[in-house]
Design a protein around this nucleic acid. Structure first.
Length: 455
RNA sequence: GGCCCUAUCGUCUAUCGGUUAGGACGCCCGGUUUUCAACCAGGUAAGGCGGGUUCGACUCCCGCUAGGGCUGCCA
C-alpha cells in the first residue's frame, strides 16, 4: 500500500512488432523496481491491436527476453487482442454520449488539411467539421474523440519531469479507433490501464505527447488518470534515439555475450544514480525512488557495459560459467583462469587450449633471440622438473624459478613452457596452466613441443 | 513548421548559493608479472551563451543557442 492507501500497480506494454528493445528492458526494470519497492504489482500487457504487424513469434521472443533478464511479471499476460469486447463497450458508450464520433473525411482531405496547416505555421491536427452528420455506420469512417477548439489546458505532474501542460485545442479531434472493434493505441491503452487499475504509468518520454490525449480519454470515460512518469530515452553515440542503425538493440542479441545481471545493472545505472556502480537487484530495490530517475537521456556506452560484464563474469562459479558459456569440457580449476580475463562470453573460445590440445607455429616457442637448442634444452629441463614435482603452484614455481636462476634467463624458461602448454603468446601463467591441466596432459604437451622443435 | 522535453570532464554522473567542482567508465603513465588479464598507485579532462536575483552563482529566474522526442486510420 502506498500513502494514498492504494496498492501500486504498474505495467509494461510492449508491442509484439519486434524483439524486446533494450530501452523497453530499461523501462521494464524501472517499473519492476518500483513495484518491488512499493510492494506493488508489475503486469505485462501485450499491445497487439495492430494486427498487421503483431506476431506470435515476437510475443514469445519478448516473453523469453524478460524471463532471461529475470524480470518476472505478476499474474497472467494481458493481451489486447483478447479484449475487443471491452473496447467496443467503451467506444459505444462514448459514441452514444456524443463524446466520440465517426469522421468521414478521406485520407486525401486530411492530408490537404495538414499541408495547409503547415504552410500557415499552424499546429497540424484535424478539427472535424461534420460531427453532426448521421453516424455513418456504412460510411466506415474512423472514430475520433470530440475535442474541437476546447480552451482546456491539460496538465499533469510528471513524477520525473515535473509539471507539464498542453493546450487541448492543439490536439484536434484525434483518432481513437478504426471501428468499434478496432481500437487504436491511445484509446486501448487507456481502457486497459483504467480497467487494470494501473496507478503509475512509467514509460519512455517518447510518450509525453500522447499523454494529453490519453488524459482526455480518461475524462471522456469518467475515469481518473493514473500518475505518469516519463523516462528519458536511451541514446545512440550520436545522441539520437537508440535504434537498429546503432547496432544490436534487441535484448536477445546480448544473450550470447552478456550476463543478464550485467545488462540489468547497466541499464539501471544508465538512468539512475545508485550508491555504487555495481550492485544487486535487491540493493537497487532498496535504493530506488521514482523521483530520482534522471531527467535527461544517456548515451548507451558499450565500454561501460563491457566493464560491468567483466565484473559479473569474474564472480561466476565454475558450474555457472559452464552453463552460461556452454563450455562443458573445461575443468573447474581452469574456470577462474578464463573468467578473470573475459569481457564477453564468446571470447572464451580463445581459451580452447584449456580443454583441447592447441596447434601453433613452432617459431612461437622461441624466446626472443634464443636458439632452437637453447629452447629445447630449457624445455627438457622443465619437463624433467614437471615429471618429478608435485603438482602444486608453489612447488612447481620454486623449482622453475630455480631453473631460471640456473640458466640465467627467466624468459627462456617460462616463455617456451607457456607456448608448449597454451599454444599462445598471451596466456595465464604457465605454472597455473600446468597445475590446472595436470601432470599427464602437461607432460604430453611439452613432449609434443619438443617433437615439433626437432622437426 | 508546430508542440513538448533536456543541457557539468570524451561517456555516465555528484553538487540541493560559498567546494582545490567529487566519483565511475574510457584513455595515458607507473607498480606487479616471462606475456596477457586481474589488481594497486598516479595522471588527463567539465559547468553552451547572454541577462538578471544575490555580498556571492554550476546551482534560482528569464532569454537565446544547441540537442532530442512527438507531429499516423503504429505503438
Amino acid at each position: 500500500m502506498n500513502k494514498n492507501g492504494s496498492t501500486v500497480k504498474v505495467r509494461i506494454a510492449p508491442s509484439p512488432t519486434g524483439f524486446l528493445h533494450i530501452g523497453t528492458a530499461q523501462s521494464a526494470l524501472y517499473n519492476w523496481l518500483f513495484a518491488k519497492k512499493m510492494g506493488g504489482t508489475f503486469y505485462l500487457r501485450i499491445e497487439d491491436t495492430d494486427r498487421e504487424r503483431s506476431t506470435k513469434e515476437y510475443e514469445d521472443s519478448i516473453l523469453g527476453a524478460l524471463e532471461w533478464l529475470d524480470l518476472k511479471w505478476d499474474g497472467e499476460v494481458v493481451r489486447q487482442s483478447e479484449r475487443t469486447q471491452m473496447y467496443r463497450n467503451a467506444l459505444e458508450q462514448l459514441l452514444s454520449s456524443g463524446k466520440a464520433f465517426y469522421c468521414h473525411h478521406s485520407q486525401e482531405e486530411l492530408e490537404a488539411e495538414r499541408q495547409r496547416q503547415e504552410s500557415l505555421k499552424e499546429p497540424p491536427r484535424h478539427q472535424c467539421n461534420h460531427k453532426d452528420l448521421p453516424l455513418g455506420k456504412e460510411g466506415g469512417g474512423i472514430i475520433r474523440l470530440v475535442v474541437g477548439d476546447s480552451k482546456q489546458l491539460i496538465s499533469f505532474e510528471d513524477q520525473i519531469k515535473g509539471h507539464i501542460e498542453f493546450k487541448a485545442e492543439l490536439l484536434g479531434d484525434f483518432s481513437i479507433a478504426r471501428s468499434v472493434s478496432d481500437p487504436l493505441y491511445n484509446f486501448a491503452a487507456v481502457v486497459d490501464d483504467a480497467d487494470m487499475n494501473i496507478t503509475h504509468v512509467i514509460r519512455g518520454e517518447d510518450h509525453i505527447s500522447n499523454t494529453p490525449k490519453q488524459i482526455l480519454v480518461y475524462e471522456a470515460l469518467g475515469k481518473t488518470p493514473p500518475l505518469f512518469a516519463h523516462l528519458p530515452l536511451m541514446l545512440g553515440p550520436d545522441r539520437s534515439k537508440l535504434s537498429k542503425r546503432h547496432g544490436a538493440m534487441a535484448v536477445i542479441d546480448y544473450k550470447k555475450d552478456y550476463l543478464p545481471d550485467a545488462i540489468i545493472n547497466f541499464v539501471g545505472g544508465l538512468g539512475y544514480t545508485f550508491s555504487s556502480d555495481v550492485l544487486s537487484r535487491d540493493e537497487m530495490i532498496k535504493e530506488f525512488e521514482l523521483s530520482k530517475i534522471h531527467k535527461s537521456g544517456a548515451i548507451f556506452d558499450t565500454k561501460k557495459l563491457n566493464w560491468l560484464n567483466c565484473q559479473y563474469i569474474k564472480r561466476l562459479s565454475p558450474t555457472e560459467f559452464k552453463e552460461v558459456s556452454g563450455i562443458s569440457k573445461i575443468s573447474d580449476q581452469a574456470v577462474p583462469l578464463v573468467t578473470e580475463r573475459l569481457e564477453k562470453l564468446t571470447d572464451a573460445d580463445n581459451f580452447s587450449y584449456l580443454w583441447q590440445e592447441p596447434a601453433y607455429d613452432k617459431n612461437l616457442l622461441i624466446w626472443k633471440t634464443s636458439s632452437f637448442e637453447e629452447v629445447k634444452n630449457s624445455l627438457e629441463k622443465s619437463l624433467n622438473i614437471l615429471e618429478q614435482s608435485e603438482m602444486t603452484d608453489t612447488a612447481l614455481r620454486n623449482k622453475l624459478e630455480a631453473l631460471s636462476v640456473d640458466i640465467g634467463n627467466k624468459g627462456l624458461v617460462f616463455w617456451p613452457l607457456r607456448v608448449a602448454l597454451s599454444g599462445k603468446d598471451k596466456s595465464p601463467d604457465p605454472v597455473q596452466l600446468a597445475c590446472v591441466m595436470g601432470k599427464e596432459e602437461s607432460v604430453k604437451r611439452i613432449n609434443k613441443a619438443l617433437e615439433t622443435l626437432g622437426q
